[in-house]
């Protein structure tokens, strides 16, 4: 198993390296001279030359890339074109907020699994239909509508929560419900189909023939086998949530990564966009790595290869 994990880890580093190259060329692929962009429309040639030297853009490409990599490893992402502050500072607060929100949103995992299991074990009966109607609604209801309705009911009418802004963890409740609904619905559907596959396997029949109680057949024998396809989908969902939800952040007045991305793209704040590109990729690559490791933990056939 350690060999397998080491292999995956090397693969992960390889992917990150490729992403770094792409992000590096991102600035170079933009139309026009980046220095012109940095210096502004009215800059003189001397001013531009000074900026060029300051940024090291007069160096050969491979040296530029080397410096870019070293800076990246030191979490130095350059300065924002708009505010002039280091990108790191621009990002930090927003990232912490999105991370907190993601953490609270994780309720979708147990909720989705439980709904899916209930649906699968009551196949074609009322509970199955109910769970699946809920799940289809979760996928089809748009976030902005759900968010507004939740604010209307729980913040305006019942006044249980603040409608917008972030002062305490409690303020994340409504956004987490809004964002997590989609994940719950997707996981529920996936769990249901994975579970139905597993429940028709021969070893489930063996377990029942041993006299294992129905509950234990479901949660001891079936669940672990069904988890294999489910954790892949869970990983992807976490990746999406970590990228920040533009709609939910707008509705609930939460300054997270999603709104930062939109702001930066609109303002052509390229260093920030570049950093977000690297960060998002990093999320997905890391999550995939963790999913692979979890696979080996759950499935001995992978572990003992």
């Amino acid at each position: 198993m350690p060999q397998y994990i080491l292999k995956r880890l090397l693969g992960t580093l390889g992917v990150m390296f490729v992403i770094a190259i792409l992000a590096f060329f991102f600035v170079h692929m933009l139309p026009g001279d980046p220095v012109r962009m940095l210096a502004g429309e009215d800059a003189t040639l001397q001013e531009m030359e000074i900026i060029r030297q300051k940024l090291g853009l007069d160096l050969p490409l491979h040296q530029q890339f080397y410096i870019f990599l070293v800076n990246l490893l030191q979490l130095d992402f350059g300065n924002s074109l708009i505010s002039g502050d280091p990108v790191y500072d621009v990002l930090a607060d927003r990232y912490v907020l999105t991370a907190k929100l993601t953490l609270v949103c994780l309720w979708f995992i147990p909720a989705g699994i439980v709904l899916g299991v209930i649906a699968a074990t009551h196949k074609s009966k009322f509970l199955d239909r109910a769970c699946m109607i809920f799940s289809v609604s979760g996928i089809s209801v748009p976030e902005f509508w759900l968010g507004l309705i939740l604010i209307q009911i729980f913040a305006v009418k019942l006044q249980w929560f603040n409608p917008t802004g972030f002062q305490s963890w409690a303020d994340l409740t409504l956004p987490a419900i809004t964002i997590g609904m989609m994940g719950t619905a997707i996981i529920a559907r996936f769990t249901r189909s994975a579970f139905l596959d597993v429940l028709s396997e021969n070893y489930i029949q063996t377990a029942r023939a041993k006299g294992v109680k129905r509950f234990n057949v479901t949660y001891v024998h079936a669940l672990r086998n069904a988890m294999l396809p489910i954790i892949t989908v869970i990983g992807l969902q976490i990746g999406f949530i970590l990228s920040g939800s533009i709609v939910a952040e707008a509705i609930f007045g939460l300054p997270g990564l999603g709104s930062l991305l939109i702001e930066s793209v609109v303002a052509r704040d390229y260093p920030v966009v570049q950093t977000l590109l690297i960060l998002y990729s990093f999320h997905f690559v890391m999550i995939n790595f963790i999913v692979d490791v979890l696979y080996t933990v759950i499935n001995p056939q992978v572990r003992l290869k």
Partner: peptide, 27 residues
Amino acid sequence: QTELEEIRGDQISMIFQDPMTSLNPVM
């Protein structure tokens, strides 16, 4: 079914055709 669970595996037990798929792969 709850009564049968007591009997199955205790008084009556069963072996199946395909040994490759009749055992739980993760246990």
